[in-house]
Design a protein around this nucleic acid. Structure first.
Lengths: 196, 196
DNA sequence: TCTTTAAGTAAGTAATCACTTACATGCGCC
DNA sequence: GGCGCATGTAAGTGATTACTTACTTAAAGA
């Protein structure tokens, strides 16, 4: 037999580059030519890895979720073995959207008529929500605090806080200082966790 | 002198149709041909009213802000002469995004590299924020309540709440019932206003 | 009635872009 | 070595789309 296929490996190698391109440029302006250029390959190579441009975008959405959760887990368990929501809030207040990944969602939100894109986004938001809610429940049970807002609603509101923070950052309609306060104070208020 | 120009009038007549098209289809899929079709005119008519497609979109953004504020004021002063934030929250929990206008923002958020679009969105968010903060300050001063979160941060968080609610609605990742609770309970918690 | 110009019609155009096709190259096992 | 297939290059193509141009119609004041 001849050479073994490296397609799966190449997909994994190029996905971060593709995801970043979608985040920076949006679905429309991230042309296949531009994606190929950034990846250092020709267009048809990309079409050997994914069926079409939409498949590239859907893969990028998933990548954003995976890498964000990865970073959060890393941050939250840095000081101790236990996950700390406060540490995540602290981290996000400093670095929110640093990788620009969140912007990939905005471009999808204007393509919701496509069922595949809608489902991919819905699943992603639900996964984020489930993750945050779980951490909320955990941190509330250990601290004994009981938020005034139930953890599910609080988790949604926290996602909303992150979203508007990103929007404010990207549009420049809120100072970096104000944005940090928003994430930190707003986040703690919503999470209902005790001050550190 | 021959006929008097009706251009300004026609702009006002067609703007709601144009705005709705952008909201429903997004910037990209709302082609000039489709815009003209919905308006019942030919494309070059639109180009006599606006310089280019971007100008149509920018006008639509402004229209969304104006009409939203208009509806809010109507709702909030329906029962009494005084503006009531609680009534707006109640209204939004029922009708949020009913006109689909909010989606016009998402498409702009993936075009932030364009300075005109970025500035238009930034100004819009700041105007919304200023409006909500003002109402918060007013309702807190009359009720005597003092929120734990300062009114500026609370206003941003409320916008975030509205944004994530719309996203949840459009993607279908939260039930209508859950969404209503989110707006109502989350909104009241953030506003720090007394229960009715 | 005649002139002027706003308002509308119809067709076209240059550019862009997702996606394809045809072909060259070289790795790795027989 | 030589065969088979993964990998790469280069060019093209049909469809879409923002925007234009050339022309017709008709309103209204002189």
């Amino acid at each position: 037999m001849p050479r073994v296929s490296r397609i799966e490996q190449q997909r994994q190698d190029l996905l971060p580059i593709v995801a970043r391109a979608f985040s920076e440029l949006g679905l429309h302006r991230a042309t296949t030519a531009e994606l190929a250029r950034r990846c250092g390959v020709r267009e048809n190579i990309l079409y050997r890895l994914w069926d079409d441009k939409k498949a590239m975008y859907l893969a990028a959405i998933r990548y954003v979720y995976d890498s964000t959760i990865h970073i959060w887990l890393q941050q939250a368990t840095k000081k101790s073995d236990e996950f700390s929501l406060a540490d995540v809030l602290e981290y996000e207040s400093q670095h929110l959207g640093e990788f620009g990944h969140y912007r990939i969602l905005f471009t999808g939100l204007s393509e919701l008529d496509d069922p595949d894109i809608r489902h991919a986004l819905a699943r992603m938001y639900q996964d984020f929500h489930a993750f945050i809610k779980r951490q909320l429940d955990q941190s509330r049970s250990t601290s004994g605090a009981k938020g005034e807002l139930n953890s599910s609603l609080a988790a949604w509101a926290l996602i909303g806080l992150g979203t508007i923070s990103t929007i404010a950052r990207e549009t420049g309609c809120l100072s970096p200082r104000g944005r940090r306060r928003l994430i930190k104070e707003g986040g703690r208020y919503l999470a209902g966790v005790a001050e550190k």
